[in-house]
């Protein structure tokens, strides 16, 4: 039972962390508004699930909304700040988060909602593990997402250009890639990942104002895995989910909130670029 919950939580953490990573890779900006995007997307999914009974269609609508939101936030707010300090960009994303949070609470009143998920059975796996259909679907969706992202980066033209831009933006610009367009698409994908994670959170647990805390833990996941490594989020998510669940079960829940940050501090001390991240030349603040 514990193992199953760890695996499911790890899957969601990985998905949340991948949103950070995709955005950071493309534009070197840590998106502090991620938690609020997750919340907003979650509430939107709740409303849509009531309006459209077919859950795949509502999920698709949420993803599209998130993609467009990400692109437009990049185009309207982040892009004009190109060339300013890292701090400006961070504060900007924080402020965007505050604003989106206000919008979300204003529209949805901040109540606790669950996204209905029609299909409900249990699977018995060897080793006395029972997996509900929801958990099964969650793991399936996360795996599918990672497979799609892997294929996208590896084989598509835009994916290749995104990798090229992440490595060497100047040369990429010289070779005719429009960096702003590529970064905009990356923001869109990052936000869509957040939307997908929100959907999974909604079917597994519930959407509420506290969902931000989960997204913050995911931020730790991104850092431990390496801010520019998509693959790194998977082991990092398992580490965080396992330690957190074990502390909550066997020690105390308040320590459970702090434990990801203790791990993050240790990683920053000994391996600042994360498990699989590449060392980067940092700009000044």
């Amino acid at each position: 039972m514990l193992l199953a919950s760890i695996v499911v939580l790890a899957g969601i953490y990985a998905l949340l962390g991948s949103g950070f990573v995709i955005i950071y890779k493309a534009s070197r900006i840590l998106n502090f508004a991620h938690a609020e995007i997750v919340m907003l997307a979650g509430y939107l999914a709740v409303s849509l699930a009531v309006a459209i009974p077919f859950s795949a269609a509502s999920l698709l609508a949420v993803l599209c909304f998130c993609f467009v939101l990400g692109m437009s936030i990049y185009a309207i707010l982040i892009r004009p700040l190109a060339g300013y300090s890292v701090l400006s960009a961070i504060i900007l994303t924080v402020a965007v988060g505050v604003l989106l949070n206000a919008v979300g609470v204003f529209v949805w009143r901040g109540e606790m909602e669950v996204i209905p998920f029609g299909w409900r059975t249990y699977f018995s796996l060897p080793g006395n593990i029972r997996l509900s259909s929801i958990e099964f679907a969650t793991l399936g969706i996360v795996t599918l997402f990672y497979a799609c992202m892997g294929l996208f980066y590896r084989f598509t033209k835009i994916g290749q250009q995104m990798r090229a831009t992440a490595e060497n933006p100047l040369l990429a610009a010289q070779r005719g890639i429009s960096i702003y367009r590529i970064s905009g698409i990356a923001w869109g994908i990052g936000f869509a990942a957040a939307g997908l994670a929100a959907f999974l959170l909604g079917i597994n647990y519930a959407i509420s104002l506290q969902i931000g805390n989960i997204a913050v833990a995911a931020f730790v996941v991104a850092l431990i895995g390496g801010l520019d490594s998509l693959l790194g989020t998977i082991p990092a998510a398992f580490i965080i989910a396992a330690t957190e669940q074990l502390t909550i079960t066997y020690a105390n829940p308040r320590l459970g909130d702090a434990i990801p940050f203790i791990i993050m501090l240790m990683v920053l001390m000994f391996k600042p670029w994360g498990l699989l991240g590449t060392k980067e030349e940092l700009d000044r603040v």
């Binding site: 840590l30 850092l223 909130d257 940050f261």
Partner: peptide
């Protein structure tokens, strides 16, 4: 202490971690 080897956003994150530990 982390500022010996960390800069920019990484340093900010280490202070964020310390914030959460104090809060705990």
């Amino acid at each position: 202490l982390p500022s010996f080897q960390l800069k920019g956003i990484y340093l900010g994150l280490s202070t964020l971690a310390i914030h959460h530990i104090i809060k705990y």
